[in-house]
């Protein structure tokens, strides 16, 4: 067991836990976006930053990836942390301020508007879908493509992926509904949407739909409005 202090509260947790887990297990709230209980920590959104006391002054770390250390003294709500979360939320609002999830997250750190401008998109690149497809489903039908601010989530070549098994796990873990699932009743097909729309078949794993499975894996995409 490891003993540490978070916001003045002395707590004990198992070795190997992260600061975020330690805090949550003890009723201390830290806002998160890219974190998902079922997925490996990613450290991408930086909403969960906290201050760690060090001999050289406070050090800012992402609580979702930082392991608990014996004797660590952690502060989750300082002026600096408030400011860092505020600016991160403002950037998120510039990107996806139209989504209820981001609006709520921003409101929780006191942000309701943004002074910045970014190309608007529901996808906030939290990578939950990519990680779920890799870690939970074990397929890796989608990945991050490009880099920097050009980064997008995409299946290879941005066309319908032959590896996708239509399980819709990505839809489940997407916080901002950037990936949705549509049932087209007359042909009983599901369609996933990330920036583009991809014609898909019914879930290959699902017995109920098994007899209705049609091979549409290689169909061309239709670009979503």
């Amino acid at each position: 067991m490891i003993a540490l202090t978070i916001d003045g509260k002395e707590i004990e947790v198992e070795t190997g836990r992260t600061l975020l887990e330690a805090a949550r297990e003890n009723g201390i709230h830290i806002p998160t976006l890219c974190y998902h209980e079922a997925l490996k920590p990613y450290g991408g959104c930086r909403m969960c930053v906290v201050e760690l006391e060090t001999p050289r002054g406070p050090r800012v770390v992402a609580s979702c990836t930082y392991p608990v250390e014996d004797g660590a003294v952690v502060h989750t709500e300082t002026d600096q942390i408030g400011q860092l979360r505020k600016v991160a939320a403002q950037l998120l609002m510039a990107r996806a301020g139209h989504t209820p999830f981001i609006q709520e997250l921003a409101a929780s750190v006191g942000v309701d508007s943004t002074p910045y401008t970014l190309p608007t998109d529901s996808c906030v690149l939290c990578s939950r879908c990519v990680r779920a497809c890799q870690e939970i489903v074990g397929i890796g039908a989608i990945s991050m493509a490009n880099r920097g601010s050009d980064r997008v989530v995409a299946p290879p070549f941005s066309i319908s992926s032959a590896d996708c098994i239509e399980c819709a796990t990505c839809v489940q873990v997407c916080p901002t509904d950037a990936i949705t699932l549509k049932l087209i009743t007359d042909r009983n097909r599901t369609v996933h949407v990330w920036p583009s729309e991809f014609a898909r078949g019914a879930c290959r794993l699902c017995e109920y739909h098994a007899d209705e499975w049609m091979d549409v894996g290689a169909q061309e995409q239709t670009v979503h409005g």
Partner: peptide, 21 residues
């Protein structure tokens, strides 16, 4: 790229992400 993915083997999505990175 599809051949590379099958032969190495690594998921095509990883080949694609490296190729675009």
């Amino acid at each position: 790229l599809i051949m590379v993915s099958e032969r190495i083997p690594v998921p095509l999505s990883r080949v694609y992400s490296v190729a675009t990175f």
